[in-house]
């Protein structure tokens, strides 16, 4: 049985490691990128089932990354969850406008992260 593949995009090593541990514990296959630019670069080879991305990142932020995915003919249908400390509705709004599927408020609770991923994946 094929594992669900998650692409995580976050510039913080701490958060990347937490995501890795959480997702691997939950039985997902995890691929990680360090910013939006790298996220777009690895999209092709990764072909993920779901993407979890941070907002504040160097080079290309989460908004730009989401827009990039949504403009990509092959990968525009992938659900994208935004990981962010911003509980601010304005920022959630911007992420939604960029095309985010859902969001997880950081610091994330592993149960909630998994629940959110399950919610948007088949």
């Amino acid at each position: 049985m094929k594992k669900t593949k998650v692409l995580t995009v976050d510039d913080s090593r701490t958060i990347r490691n937490m995501l890795l541990v959480t997702l691997n514990n939950a039985g997902y296959e995890t691929v990680q990128a360090e910013d939006g630019m790298e996220g777009l670069e690895v999209l092709e080879e990764t072909n993920p089932d779901v993407i979890v991305t941070d907002i504040n990142m160097p080079r290309l932020d989460g908004y730009g990354f989401i827009e990039g995915v949504r403009l990509n003919d092959k990968y525009r249908a992938i659900p994208i969850l935004v990981l962010t400390t911003e509980s601010d509705p304005e920022k959630k709004n911007r992420a939604r406008e960029a095309g985010a599927t859902g969001w997880i408020v950081k610091p994330f609770d592993p149960t909630k992260l998994i629940a959110a991923i399950e919610r948007v994946t088949a």
Binding site: S12, T14, I15, N56, M57, P58, T85, K106, P107, F108
Partner: peptide
């Protein structure tokens, strides 16, 4: 400014966890 913001933001995020 963005880089400065990100630095603080990132520390906050990890510290929260």
């Amino acid at each position: 400014v963005n880089a400065v913001f990100r630095a603080v933001h990132s520390i906050k995020g990890g510290a929260g966890a």
